[in-house]
Design a binder for these strands. Structure first.
Lengths: 206, 206
DNA sequence: CCAGAACCGATACGCTTGTATCGGAATAAG
DNA sequence: CTTATTCCGATACAAGCGTATCGGTTCTGG
């Protein structure tokens, strides 16, 4: 038998290249040849990993989806003892992809979201990621609201929070908001949510 | 001299065709030939209206930008006597493009936003539209909060509201939320804003 | 009526794209 | 060492793209 290769790791490497290119020029400018060059493999190698371009893009999209969700989860596990409030704040900030080093990921995500509006297979992948994120936020909110069920529907709060972060992210990307404005808006929203979770008038901050 | 044509109206007609196609298959699938067919003109006619494809897309984007902003404004002017609260609600709902008949416009808008993340000229056009919308919302909020300056910074509230509507719109488009869920989330957000406007800002948390 | 200008649709062209194909290099088994 | 198999990179190919060009048509001004 011939030389053996690890297809799985190669797929991931190619997915990374796809993300770099999407970040730079948008998904419509991604060609198989450019991907091959960027991943430092031959065009043939890319073709052997993915039967078609669509397949490659689909793989790439849940590659980044997993990465984002995973990072948000890791952010929580990394500091377990902290208050639920700051945990929620950190998770939301992570999801919003506001930090400059995640700007690229944000662009990739937005590009795929837009494309998903006209591509059902892509939309399905994204729904999975969104469901995971919303679930994560929802659990955090429920946890933060004390063990009592007095909290105002964590699911709804999570929906609102997730939509806000997505909106803020895209507004930063096109330059309508600065990173600071977006962070401040997100922070304000969280503070009010926190306030609402603690029905008492005295605001005890974290 | 030869036959005269109204270039301006033709440009608009072509822009409409562009929107139809973007709605159906996304902007990367828009070709000059398809646009010509859809607009029921010849390819040559399209070329004579717009020197290049980029120019055509840019024209299309602020065509829809104007249409959305205009509709929001019209919604206000159309019912002037109503309370500021419902005016704000109507305007926000209009901006969110949640109604089914505006689904197409929403898809077009999202597609252009994504593209703007990697195209500065496009981003500039969109910033103009967003600035107009945010200004509109901001004025409405200020108005709704009574004449006093006790309202909690209309600009910030408008930012938050606009980001939320954008996020909700895209979540509906990819099927993560239903129209009803999005409407309810928006309504809740507005209700809380309204509440805050009347009780006065308790603890400004930021 | 007749020039001449402005517009029309069709066609041509060069280029890039996704995908298919193919001879050869590399490696494990005999 | 030979042989068979698996992977490699290069090249081939048809289709579709944006754009340029060009003769014909239609209308205005004299």
């Amino acid at each position: 038998m011939p030389k053996q290769v690890d297809y799985e790791s190669r797929r991931r490497r190619i997915a990374e290249a796809v993300c770099l290119l999407v970040d730079e020029h948008g998904p419509e400018a991604v060609t198989m040849r450019d991907v091959a060059t960027r991943a430092e493999v031959s065009l043939g190698a890319v073709q052997r990993c993915f039967r078609t371009k669509e397949e490659m893009l689909l793989f790439a999209v849940d590659h980044v989806g997993e990465r984002i969700t995973e990072r948000a989860r890791a952010r929580l596990a990394g500091s377990p003892a902290q208050s639920a409030a700051s945990a929620l704040g950190h998770a939301a900030t992570e999801v919003a992809l506001l930090r400059r080093e995640h700007r690229a990921e944000a662009r990739v995500w937005l590009a795929f979201v837009a494309r998903a509006a006209v591509s059902e297979p892509l939309a399905a992948k994204l729904r999975t990621s969104y469901a995971a994120l919303q679930d994560l936020l929802s659990r955090l909110i429920a946890e933060a609201g004390g063990d009592a069920a007095l909290t105002p529907d964590p699911q709804r709060e999570a929906r609102s929070l997730l939509a806000l972060t997505d909106g803020l992210t895209s507004h930063v990307l096109i330059g309508h908001l600065t990173t600071e404005e977006a962070e401040e808006t997100l922070h304000t929203h969280l503070a009010r949510l926190w306030e609402r979770l603690h029905t008492g008038p005295p605001g005890n901050a974290d």
